[in-house]
Design a protein around this nucleic acid. Sequence first.
DNA 1: GTGAAAGCGCTAACAC
DNA 2: GTGTTAGCGCTTTCAC
Lengths: 334, 334
Amino acid sequence: MAATIADVARRAGVGVGTVSRVLNNRPKVRPATRARVLTAIEELDYVPSETARRLSLGRTQTIAVLSIHLVIPSVIERIRGIESSLTAAGLDMIIRNVETVDRRAQAIRDMSRAERVDGAIFISIGPDPDEYAQIRASGVPVVLVDAHHPELPSVVSDDVEGGRIAGRHLLDLGHTRLGFVGDPPNPSLGVRSSRMRLQGVTEALKERGLRIDPSHIVEGEHSRAEARRSALTILSAPDPPTAVVAANDTLAFGVLHAARDLGLSVPGGLSVIGYDDIDAADLVGLTTVHQPLQETGTEAARRLLALIDGTGTGPSRTTLPVHLTVRETTGPPP
Amino acid sequence: MAATIADVARRAGVGVGTVSRVLNNRPKVRPATRARVLTAIEELDYVPSETARRLSLGRTQTIAVLSIHLVIPSVIERIRGIESSLTAAGLDMIIRNVETVDRRAQAIRDMSRAERVDGAIFISIGPDPDEYAQIRASGVPVVLVDAHHPELPSVVSDDVEGGRIAGRHLLDLGHTRLGFVGDPPNPSLGVRSSRMRLQGVTEALKERGLRIDPSHIVEGEHSRAEARRSALTILSAPDPPTAVVAANDTLAFGVLHAARDLGLSVPGGLSVIGYDDIDAADLVGLTTVHQPLQETGTEAARRLLALIDGTGTGPSRTTLPVHLTVRETTGPPP
DNA sequence: GTGAAAGCGCTAACAC
DNA sequence: GTGTTAGCGCTTTCAC
C-alpha cells in the first residue's frame, strides 16, 4: 500500500542505504544524488514507517506520562506543558491514568518492560522503594513532577515557600488563628506537597511567635466534597479560625462551599486562600498561591529529553518559584 | 538486555513459532508444551516487544485523538472517556492538540501516513472536503465526537434538544426576552453545536409563539473574556433580555462576570443558563444543560474499535441524551 | 503439533 | 560517496 524505502531507492536508482542517509540528513551524499532521492520521495509521497524505525533503532520515540487522577485541574495543566515540549521534539506521549496503587505498580511494570518507552514522567507520584528498584533496573530515565525522590530528578515548585507566602499574607491582614485543609498525610500515592505547604504556613506563624491549633488542621481526600466536610468541622468548633489555607484550589472551593453553608461571608466573615491558581480560581475570584503548572511540565520534558540523549545531568531537583495572586477571598479578620 | 522470543524458545526447547502461538493463545499447542513455554516466559520475565509486534502485524495498536484546544474543559472530559476505553482494550492513544486550521491539516496528514495509526477520533473537529478525501484515501477509520459529517460515524449529544430544554426552562419561569451568547457562527474548525443549541432555543420560543430578538444574539470567540464582553453588549442595550442562554459553561461564566460588572444579581436580576455541566458549573452553582461528556468518549472509542476489527457498522450517528441540571443561576424574571 | 524460514521496513556496519 | 547486507523481534505460512 504505502511506499517503502525500497520503492524510493528503486525509483531513484540508488540503494536503500543512501535513501536512509538522505532521510536522516547525514553527510556523505552527493548533492545530485540527494536531489534524486528527494524527488523520488516527493513523487511517491513517501513517509518512513515510525514502527520500523523504532524496531531498528531500539528506541520507541515514546515517553510515558504516569499521572494521578486525570480530573485534577493542576495535573491537566502540567500535561499540557509536557505535551507541547514533546510534540516539538517529535516524540509521542502515552498517558497512564493511575488511580490506585495497584494500577501504579502495573503501569510501572508495563512501562519498563512491555512498552519499552524511552523515558517517563511521573506527575504527583513518588515511587516507593520497590518501584524505584524496578525503574532503576529497567534503565528507563524518569523525571518526577510535583514529587520527590532522593535518586530521581524532579521538577517541583517551592511548596514550603508557597505555604509561607500564604501564611504571611493572612498574618499581614491581621489574622492570628489560621486553619488548614489539606490532602491526606500519608497518601497512598506518595505525594507530599500538601504537608510541605502546611509546613510553610507553620513557619510563617512561627516568625510572628504564633502557632496553628492542631485541631484546626484537617487532612482528607482530595475532593471538594471532602474539603467541605473538613472545613465544616473546624469552622463549627468553638474558637474557629478566621482564615483557612487550603492545600490546593479544589479544596479551597470546598472551604468556600462550607462557608456558604454556615452563612459566613467571604472575606468578611472568613478569609480563604488556595494553592495552584487553576483556571477556575480566577473564575470565582479566589486568592491563591500561583505556581507555574505548565512550566513544570515543559521543564520536566526538557530534562527528560536531555537524560535520554545522554546530555542530561544526574538526579537533581529543579525548583520553580511561586507567587501570591490576591483576589477577593481574603481580607481582614472580622 | 531484555529477553526475546528466541530466548524463550531456546529455554523451552521449542521453536519461536510455538512460543508465538502460546503468546497469542492460539490452539494447536499440546498442553505440556504450552506449560513448558509458560514456565520459560516466567523464568526469563519475558514480555514481547510491542514494536516488533507492530511491525510484523502492520498495525500500530495506537489510535490518534485530534482535538481542539486542550484547555476546554469539555474536551478534557471526553478524552478521559476515550482513554479509559482504549487502555482497557490495550491500545495506546496519542493526542494531537489542534489549535489552528493549518495544524489540523498537518495532523490529518501525519495521522494517515507517517504515524499510521489504526484509527482516529476527532473531538469537535469536522473535516472539510479535502480532509475527508484524505481520510478516506488513507483508509484509517475515524469517529467524530461532537461534530458531524455525512460519511463519517459520529457520537454527539442532542444539541437541538438541549437548547430546547434550556429555552423551555426559562420560559416556564416566566421569561419572555431571552439572550444567547455562543461560539462563532462559522468556526474555522467546523463545529456547529453552538448553532444547533441556538436553534433549540429558538424552537422552544416558537412553541409559545415567541421569538428571540436578533440583537440579543452574540456569537464570539470561545473564551470567558469574550463572552463577558458580548454579554455586556446585550445587557446594556435598551430593553435587555431577562435571561441569557450560553452555548457552553465557559461562556456562561463570562456572562455571570458581566452581570457582576453591571451590578445585576443572579438570578434576581438576570437568569443565566449554561451548557455542558463541567466540573466548575457545580462549583459556582450554575444551572446548565448536562450532557454526558465522558460517555461520548467511551462510546466513540467503542465504535472505533468495532470499526478497526471489522465488526463495526457503517457511518451512523449515535445521539446521547441530555438533561437539565437546575442550580442557582436561574429564577423568575425581575 | 511443531520447527524452520521468510518477511515487516528500517538503520548501520562494511565493502568497494 | 554509494550499494549490499545483516540484524531489530515479532507473526505467519509451509513443510514435516
